[in-house]
Design a protein around this nucleic acid. Structure first.
Lengths: 348, 348
DNA sequence: CTGAAAGCGCTTACAG
DNA sequence: CTGAAAGCGCTTACAG
């Protein structure tokens, strides 16, 4: 490589102006077809590399969309991310991914970087504790945001997520219909809208069935496979042990089932288990996991589309857009409980 | 927000020049302490946002490092990515992540984007079929590369990966020592150095033990949990069925074990299984998975450090740097299943 | 210790 | 259909 080739290198080589070259490279109809081809050919052979920083400085559009979630390794986000990426690709936007690990500082430094890079927009699953002002800061600096999976009160920004409380009630209803009366809920935290909503659905389903909730049934906290595994101990120690557990997510459920097996119990036989998200693994797990399909690709696709629309100038709804979840019955609750029911003290 | 605040806004407000403001904001000792503080204070209160595109255009340093792998959701990469991120953070480099899904086109468009954005360097696990010229293109355009996990012949670039053939021989030796003579290898492909190396280790271990390899033992292909699950059918159909399977990765092994259970077989009892990578889940799986720790955080940390060193001007070794793997013996090659185990709920 | 001026590589009116 | 010129917001010699 001699000198770096730039627009003016091409312009000089062809005896044209940089304006013409710039236009031609972007397929402007203002440039004559022949000229355009000569220019493109020259760009190709000379190894020209478009300098986006320069262009972006001038136009104040960067073609970048930042996407930030707490756990890119969670298959749940994997699907969302994939559909966002597809949608963004289609509109030739570069997508920059960030894992904030639910650390507010990491998220802030990412938003900051996006601001400095002049990103066109932001899609995020806000970290625990994100104040509405963090979102406003971005918005006020011309960085439109769309939220996914979680909601931030007062952010004024559109967010897309599953109807978590309804979804959770679906799986608890299912458990109740199979005869369970003592049902634990494992995982999730008060600190996120997801955790609050799913717990709400769980409680409401119990209430509707006339089952009195007992505090020891709620094992809050776990949100990973590993912590689901660890929660087994707590679960097994509950006095008058529940016969079923609805888990905050598939990952938690899968870890919990490992824990059950390890303790010599058979998930799906001795203890009924449900998950949430319907990740790929749910269908091949042992036993195959009954769970709630959460519409992740719809979340991703719609969030990306909504952001793209805002970039076009359309205002967002500014409201929580709910995707309706769906119960997927498999075999992790398959035991026929009525045969075995033995606590006559429970209301029916 | 009125107008966007920039260096000159601050300079004007304080009756200083943009040069002084620029220097002060970057903590230059050339600026008097008091002046510097006034400037920083003004920047803070006015909501100044540093424009990295402008700075980068001028300095031709962007502070960006691109990282590209085929599957960010694989926990194996999760660990590598985390350690890269930590190392990069420490040097205040922004890290841009990309998933190429082993599609050459995706990888190319990412490299292209990095070039256009003026990234300072690139760390990648090259997609299947990456020609050395793709790496040269980046290098020649001032985008230094470091490879991880996989190697590209003739790229001339430093790469960091585990000693895959040695690692695989470790687990096969272990199986042989436990008395297995018919051992299948499941997953991985000829198309990657990882696949080739691990198969080499498998074959060599058999050979050393005087066991004649049979072609039907090699079930190539699977590299995900799901395809590991699917491979169970092929495995079970092998005539004179092997008593053990060494899998290409933990994910494959975990899926394969699901498949075995589904078929009514007990992994670790009826069929011995080994994995590769020692991801987090291996220790809590049922049965806990015997596997090979692959030094992923060392890979990530050293790759990032090597790239950073190149950015400082130090030349890379240009050679494959091997990390020595280690066998982790757990129970998947000899498991004492808890008592009451029988195959759970029959899938329909 | 501070300022004036040039320049990084594009794009965008504006002329012609 | 093509060109000359200004400007995006920084940083970097160079003066003083």
């Amino acid at each position: 490589m001699g000198q770096k080739v730039k627009l003016s290198t091409i312009a000089d080589a062809l005896g044209l102006s940089t304006a013409t070259v710039s236009l031609a490279l972007r397929d402007s109809p203002l440039v004559a077809e022949v000229t355009r081809e000569r220019i493109k050919e020259e760009a190709r052979t000379s190894g020209y590399i478009y300098n986006r920083r320069a262009a972006s400085l001038r136009t104040s559009k960067s073609g970048i969309v930042g996407v930030c979630v707490h756990d890119i390794m969670n298959p749940f986000f994997g699907e969302i991310l994939k559909s966002i990426e597809d949608e963004l690709d289609r509109h030739r936007q570069t997508f920059i991914l960030c894992n904030h690990y639910d650390e507010l500082q990491k998220q802030r430094s990412f938003v900051d970087t996006m601001l400095q890079l002049g990103a066109d927009g932001l899609i995020m699953s806000p970290a625990i504790g994100t104040p509405a002002t963090d979102i406003h800061l971005a918005e006020e600096n011309d960085l439109p945001c769309v939220l996914i999976a979680r909601t931030v009160e007062g952010s004024g920004v559109t967010s897309f997520r599953g109807d978590d409380s309804y979804g959770m009630s679906l799986s608890v209803d299912h458990l109740i219909a199979r005869g369970h009366r003592r049902i634990a809920m494992i995982g999730g935290t008060e600190a996120t809208s997801t955790g609050r909503e799913r717990e709400k659905g769980y409680r409401r389903a119990l209430e509707t069935a006339g089952i009195d909730f007992r505090p020891e049934w709620r094992i809050a906290g776990p949100r990973s496979r590993h912590s689901g595994f660890d929660a087994t101990q707590t679960f097994l120690a509950i006095e008058d042990r529940p016969t079923a557990a609805c888990c905050f997510s598939d990952l938690v459920a899968l870890g919990f089932m490992y824990g059950l097996s390890r303790a010599g119990l058979r998930p799906g036989v001795d203890i009924a288990v449900t998950g949430y998200d319907d990740i790929d693994e749910a269908a091949i797990a042992m036993p195959p996991l009954t769970t709630v399909a959460n519409g992740q690709s719809e979340v991703g696709q719609r969030a990306a589309a909504a952001l793209l629309a805002r970039l076009q100038g359309t205002a967002g709804s500014g409201v929580v857009e709910l995707i309706t979840p769906e119960l997927k019955v498999r075999q992790s609750c398959a035991f026929d409980w009525p045969d075995r029911r033995s606590s006559p003290t429970e209301p029916s």
